[in-house]
Design a protein around this nucleic acid. Structure first.
Lengths: 194, 194
DNA sequence: CCTACCGATCGGTAGG
DNA sequence: CCTACCGATCGGTAGG
């Protein structure tokens, strides 16, 4: 309960409180969804009234978009790094899937880009989310391009199926039994054709 | 604007109005989600104030559960019939997938069992939805059991992946280019291993 | 960061 | 099926 802040002024790390609030908000959004999370809920977890949050953020919409995009930024970096370390096309695909699932299935994941409830978000927010997500998915576009797939398989549908599969995993996965990497291995096993 | 109802009493099809309201509600729930659809929205589409709906339904929760379960009832029947007509395991799986996607991807589908927004629903409603859905998914359990899959593939995960894939399709599918049956064919092509 | 409040909207009800 | 309303909750703001 000690407050190591010199009496001469406020904390010299000005945005650590903000970061704390962002983490709380990310967890609540991930667990209860956009509409299911009120500013008062976020405030409660932060030990503050809902209205007080507006000193740190501009609006609920802006908060959500910021969290979503930051999560995709980090995910993109990690996946790109994991893919870079592999050269075989299937190994690269597996590296991407395992990294993405590792992020999305992490228990307290503040990086959860699982805000696929695009339907419960205001229209202008949805547009921003979709634009960012489309860019993210471009990463998988080139990975699928590299694969030596049999001719009858349509690469465009294949990519949609794979991405949908990865995004859907968080809905049925329950931690404990299987590690994210094992799920990724099974997904790649199913999607592997040559 | 004529009302072909004898002056001696009310309409002799007592629940056709109710059925009408159920269809409207199903469409709104499918398009805007549970929380995104207000009783006033439903009333507006039905040409009535929100409060007036309570002569036909007990509560918003009960309405949603009724629609969800009725949709799964009908889907189950159609899929069972389609599967019954096939004997080859992969043909049976394809029949089930094509029928389910035909239902879920139909443009104005009032049968859309796409209420996978289990997160935006009250807890006790969610329990009922999940119970019904688990029963529905049992249908696919036996279909996967029949498949001559290679040993390294885990049937339990495989079934989860397949169901997740089918449920996720409605999120990215856009009518016009590809028919539901073609999506089903591609899904089965990806999931086909022996 | 709080008090106190705004206008809007929600599911639902009483009483006709 | 409407009028009129209930208590609750929402995102957000003014003023300190």
């Amino acid at each position: 309960m000690t407050k190591p802040v010199p009496p001469s002024g406020p904390n010299d790390e000005p945005s650590s409180r903000r970061r704390q609030i962002l983490e709380i908000a990310a967890q609540l959004f991930a667990k209860k969804g956009y509409r299911g999370t009120s500013m008062r809920d976020i405030g409660e977890q932060a030990g503050v009234l809902g209205g007080s949050l507006y000193h740190h953020i501009r609006s609920k919409d802006a908060l959500f978009v910021e969290l979503h995009n930051a999560a995709l930024d980090r995910a993109e970096e990690r996946i790109a790094a994991a893919v870079r370390a592999q050269s075989d096309p299937w190994a690269r695909l597996y590296a991407a899937c395992a990294t993405l699932l590792d992020i999305q299935l992490a228990p307290g994941s503040l990086t959860t880009p699982m805000m696929n409830d695009f339907r419960e978000v205001p229209d202008d927010v949805r547009e921003q989310l979709i634009a960012r997500r489309d860019r993210f998915e471009g990463l998988f576009r080139s990975l699928v391009e590299e694969l030596p797939l049999p001719a009858p398989i349509d690469r465009s549908i294949y990519r949609n199926l794979l991405l949908a599969q990865l995004n859907a995993t968080a809905d049925w996965y329950r931690p404990g039994k299987l590690a994210p990497a094992e799920i990724a291995a099974q997904i790649v096993a199913v999607f592997r054709h040559e």
